[in-house]
Design a protein around this nucleic acid. Sequence first.
RNA 1: GCGCGGGUAGCUUAGUCGGCUGGAGCACCCGGCUGAUAACCGGGAGGUCGCAGGUUCAAGUCCUGCCUCGCGCACCA
Length: 1045
Amino acid sequence: MATPRTTSELDSVALETELLSTWQDEKLFEATVENRAEGEPFIFLEGPPTANGKPGIHHVVARTYKDLVCRWKTMQGNFVERKGGWDTHGLPVEIEVQKRLDLMSNEAIEAFGMEEFNKECRESVWTYEAAWREMTERMAYWCDLDEPYVTLHNEFIESCWWALKQMFDKGLLYRGYKVLPYCPQTGTSYSSHEVALGYKEVEEPSVYVKFKLEDTNASILAWTTTPWTLPGNVGLAVGPDVEYVRVRVTATPEKWEGHGGAEIGEELILAKDLFKEVIRHHCEEVETFPGSDLIGRSYEPLFPGAVDRNGSESAWTVIGADWVTTTDGTGVVHTAVMYGEDDYNLGMEVGLPAQHTVAMDGSFLEGTHSELDGRYVKDCDETIIKLMHDSGLLYREKMYLHDYPHCWRTGHPLLYYAMDSWFVKMTAVKDKLLEFNSQVEWAPDWVGEGRFGEWLRNVKDWAISRERYWGTPLPVWICGECGKQHCVGSTEEMASMAKEGSPVAEDLHRPYVDDTILACPECGGDMKREPFVMDCWFDSGCASFAQWHHPFGEEGKFENNFPIDYICEGVDQTRGWFYTLLAVSTTVFDSICYKRCLSLGLILDAEGKKMSKSKGNIVDPWDHFNREGADATRWYMVTAGAPWNPLKFDPNGVRETYGKMFLTLWNIHRFHSDYAALDGFDPASSPRGNNTPLDNWVLSRLAEVVAGTTKQFEEWDFHKACRDIEEFVVNDVSNWYVRRSRRRLWDEADSDDKLACQHTLHTVLVTVSRLMAPVSPFMSDAIHRNLVGESVHMADWPEAGDVDSEIIETMALVRELAETGRRIRVDADRRQRLPCAEGWIVSGPDLSAFHEILAEELNVEIISLEKDLDRFQKIEVVPNRRSLGAKCRQDLPAVLQGIADGDSEAMLASIEAGNLVISGYEIGKDDIELRRIEREGFAAQTVQIADSSVSLVLDMSDSPELLSRGLARDITRRIQAARKDLDLAIEDTISLQVWMKDAPELYGEDSAWIINETRASSADFKIGEGQGESFEVDGATIWYSVSRS
RNA sequence: GCGCGGGUAGCUUAGUCGGCUGGAGCACCCGGCUGAUAACCGGGAGGUCGCAGGUUCAAGUCCUGCCUCGCGCACCA
């Protein structure tokens, strides 16, 4: 503790940047962590960002919530380590490089050279690292960026390999197909994110095709918008509970457009609901039946020989599927196993042959059909339609308008295509996932139950392989001789299994790792690596242990830091990182991964639109760091709303926060420290003085805020906590406590009262800075350092003191009365500076401790308590609706009317006698509330506080003494303004001249008061007209002249 | 289309178990106050509480449907 230094006007940017270098010199972050080395660990995990994009304001939001929780927990005594991390793999990195080097296909990349390409990727991921670091430091996100985990490091990759091997050993890793949107031009399949970029509305031919049943003379009608999938047809799906109809064609239609048609007498089957929409011919209904009757019936293949039966019993039969609907088409879904997700899943379920009819380059495979083989499928629509037409299998064609995904790079339509993939069998651990999820404390809880729970309930096997170049290589090798699959779990294992003479990759990336040939442990044959890399989400999903290079000799780091206590990211990570962390921990450790997860809302611009580069509505955090500072920016983001709600980022809001919260707080601090420095106040050694009720009140409010903040932080309501702190600082401390205490500190002698005030201000400021430190770490530290001599970030989280709720209520009433007094004056047209002789407070609690304050605020000579309530107040009976409503139900309006019409005094008497009956209901004490209101004819108003009513009455009479005092106040006010205009220091003295015309007499004691208040070394008061500045008050004209003496 | 979350004054927002006249802040207008900072106080104007039904003595609050915005899923035959 030490005497505070005086402070200057606020320059928040300078304050913050100076503190940053102080922190750096002191290695303060490290010190705050070490300071709690013996504390209970609170484990945080940083979700790794990618540094190949510029950091934006939304990253500042996420980092604020990460930071504030970690800082808060540290202050509470927890040991909180914060290791940084970088996500460095994945398609976005490749695409950046491809764009820059104009390598828009896999062929182009391979011609360029995979080794070179990956080198470019490796460099590209650091493009914005410096920008990230600067942002992180400037916003005071405390996180170890010097020893971060990096997903491209061999150590990290090795841990990922180890994890995958755990899955492999548990039989959770398998090879299969996954239907993905695929671009045959670039040879790439896309994630849903990228697909979303490329939806285009297109009009394409769709066709209704007849599938001839084998055991009866009828055809099932099915509809498709992708004629190119028809050669791959191996099944028809119907809804078992959907009603179908079999119709016979009786006459041709009047009009017909396009290909197709039907013969008279031909029989067709389709969903009854869709009959009218689809069938153009005149028909008679033969029979109706549920879809289940169709299941198992065989039909003739459209393109015989295009797909081999391959032993399948179910090929070219009707299959039941409950997802079939009758919203469009025919209620019959043409199923081509390899070209649709539902199709594929259904095919696997019932054992349809899984065979491609289309090659990876998008052309039909040889043997499909002589007119189609080798041609690009999208060019074959017309041919296929013609083939169908010619063989009488086409019923209709119809142009169909829909959104269809296109390659966002080349603009070509994507094909849903079954890709060779490796999967983690997440479906096998679904129950575990759900159970673990139920153990996570989600904020907000509905994300856990809703969005995330929904996702888990529909969990699919995780396709973790990608046919790409830049990523963690899939550590699975397959023997070319016997087909044995082996999953490598460490670099050592890879080296020990390497075939004699084979290179052993030192850098674990492609292409080096591709060259490592293993010797098959079964047959000794050559094993080659599966040429995939892993989904980069797998990398970050491994972060909880791979950051420590677990389990490769990291000395218990992992065991001590798992499971994680707290993670925090944007809600868009629900299906991303939130999921992959849980997916990996469930399959590898059979454990939850994190105990608490804060899911943040999206950040929008001030208009509520999503921020995006193309809209140009991106907010650059530096605009605010360099203007209002990081504190105001962070505080604004936290107080603007609940963390999980979308944040409309309004630059004016940051400005407002700065002006209101930080400027005010700074000036409170300045006010305190200036006097403390002047007086040599030392909180440790200066005598305490006797607290006034005002001191006790603000300390009680402080205790209330401490308790509230702690509770709200625990409940994730950071926004509420900070709004309360702000309210306290601005309203209670600045606008009331400091305003009411100014004169106490002006006292030049070391008075008891001044010391009490200084100790109080010290406590309030120190405690408030501790409460604010997690959210706004700069100003809180500057204040704390100045007052305590130590960084706030080394300090303990405050403990709430005793709350005297009586004094808080009393003060609320006092302030209400002060405001009421001004209202009375407005109504009575009496100016504030003209004192009233007397004011009466009628009923209510004892306010005598605050009579002095009230007298000053109200500008009355004497405040007295009026005991005779009836002198100024009368009683009003108001209904208690809650109680009456339960009693009277539908008769309530009549009863309310009865009470409103009744005479309050008479009703009260009846109630006390127990015989008040209104509209047939007996009205008791609980059914009403008593309210006292002021009688008419007085300058008075009544306020209701809690269950008491208090009236304030002001005496409006004048006297020469009062007029003199009022005049003195008005003159003083003008002279003080003049002093300010002259830019005089507070201790400067002035020469003063005053002329008064038509003014009331100014008494000697009042002119002396003016002289004292305005620090006049000489003063001259004259009657008559004068010169210089003048003003009028109540008919008098006053001239005055002020000069420095 | 399905799921989740929003829609309260020009803007930002509070509103508990359904209960007294829907509170604040910013901006605006009028007045007051001030050696008090980008301050403060009083008053005013500004509200179809997204719309329509329903339940209830009583709905911003509960129920149903719809509109609308955001997000996610599915856009599929």
